[in-house]
Design a protein around this nucleic acid. Structure first.
Lengths: 287, 287
DNA sequence: CGGTTTCTCTGACTAGAGTCAGAGGTCATG
DNA sequence: CATGACCTCTGACTCTAGTCAGAGAAACCG
């Protein structure tokens, strides 16, 4: 079996097992759509928000809520801030039912873990975490785009804020590339499910260009996304005729430095106007 | 988050990702039930067999096939061997459609693997295999039962056959415990999705009892099922007042010997009537 | 050979999940 | 205060998935 078949086989296996688990804990009169809604309402939510979060038709949502309301599980009322919007909250009965669903779900998972030894459970969790990290990494998209969209600005701002915290001397946001001024180079934005989770850019017209502002959102760290971004930047630069890439970094950014070294960069003497670039690295690119 | 929540969280993550993958490749007019059927028909199958394999109502299956037949994808005809039974085969168009479904599925998985490096793919596959092994192990049930059911006899026969192959001197099936004669002791049968995948028994009335006939089906090896069976036998014996457990084994069974040593058994001098028991191990039980 | 069992098909239903087109209320704005 | 945008609700549908009861043909068994 090749890799693709192995993954498909695992997917089949896992959906089947999950189906058994889910049928077991949801098999209690309540249709799936309503059960999902009970969870998503949480401590009250606007219908508008629920609709977009669950991707439901407004008529369908209305009907689901009426059904739940008929069983006394939810109460729908006007939003205090906007008279057009309606908010839904769980009643005591609704919270009880949600708690029962939660408990059933927990029980069915507990039943799964029960026959395993403590060490086997650890191994299962670690393997699941590994699968998840790699699948998250695989589904992050990296695309070139303008550096002055809201998402791009958000990433760059987060980057600046983080450096300001991590550098003993702080970080002056004016050091950032001015939005919209990147003409010789490419800005790459990484997204997970549409949400921006990282960025980076390269800049320069000659045979030598510089990589700057490589940043990965805290909740997407440990996936290997920094490396993917770096590789994507190198490939894009090489495709634009760049043969040597440089980058400067601060000695406080130890993980970044390790990544650069592991990616084939070698340190060169510092000759850089920026006070933050305490180390400079260089790598030759081949197309 | 505790272990149960971590597993639930992974399940949510994986179903969501799988949903995206599946919607992508099955999003093409064909309802899920019919698509599944197209796969399961394979190179022709009896309706009776399909029904039991997929757990379908006979009326429902009939209708699904009529719909597929209306699109010219399948042909239903009488079975050559039994006039009551009908067989269904894929037409050329049906094979083409199935191939297209397969290709879409493969493409969507290939798209997932594509951004990963070769090493990351390896790690993903290994982690998936690990998850699968542990989940298989966790869902195997081990229950005490009579040793003369069809399932039990099947396991014991397979055990004898395998020993006959592995022992240079062969194995005499008469050495097996005679079915139905196990009075002092317990026969345990391991099942995966109802299918027997292993067995084992302990026997003896005194404070000392013997574990015999521990066997794991080849397709369930590497899961850790041997250890689960051994532990289950020890616990059952201890619960019946046994304080010392012994077992004899053959020097050709190296994995079994390793398992016994790792499980706290220590070798004792051989004092056993069976010529196959070249080594004897012993372990004290605590309730 | 006749009765019983097995297998398939048909018709009549049900429930869940979701879509679509308005109706009518609420809000922001010129 | 009129207008358009926004939000929710209702009624009328559709499609999928599945259940149930019974009819009719074929096979099996004594």
């Amino acid at each position: 079996m090749d890799q693709i078949e192995l993954v498909r086989d695992f997917n089949r296996f896992y959906t089947q097992r999950l189906g058994v688990l889910n049928d077991h804990y949801l098999g209690q009169g309540r249709p799936l759509g309503e059960a999902r809604l009970l969870f998503e309402i949480g401590d009250g939510a606007d219908l508008r928000e629920l609709r977009s979060r669950l991707g439901l038709d407004s008529g369908y949502l209305s009907r689901l809520l009426r059904s739940l309301g008929g069983d006394g599980l939810v109460a729908v009322g006007p939003s205090p801030s906007d008279g057009r919007v309606r908010t839904v909250t769980l009643t005591a009965a609704g919270r009880a039912e949600r708690a029962e669903l939660e408990a059933r779900s927990r029980d069915s998972v507990a039943g799964l873990l029960d026959p395993l030894t403590a060490e086997q459970r650890e191994r299962l969790l670690e393997a699941q975490a590994q699968v998840r990290r790699l699948m998250r990494l695989a589904t992050v998209t990296i695309d070139a785009g303008p550096d002055d969209t809201a998402s791009a600005r958000g990433c760059l701002q987060a980057y600046a804020q983080e450096l300001d915290l991590r550098f003993p001397e702080g970080y002056d946001p004016a050091t950032l590339i001015a939005p919209g001024t990147l003409t010789d180079g490419t800005f790459l934005l990484a997204r997970e499910d549409g949400r921006p989770v990282g960025c980076g850019l390269w800049q320069g017209s000659g045979p030598v260009a510089e990589i700057r502002h490589v940043w990965v959102s805290p909740d997407a760290r440990g996936l290997g996304l920094g490396r993917r971004l770096l590789t994507a930047l190198e490939q894009d630069a090489a495709a634009h005729g760049i043969t040597t890439i440089r980058l400067g970094t601060h000695s406080a950014l130890t993980e970044a430095i390790a990544l650069y070294r592991a990616s084939g960069y070698r340190e060169i003497p510092v000759d850089d106007p920026s006070p933050y670039n305490q180390l400079v690295f260089e790598k030759g690119l081949v197309l």
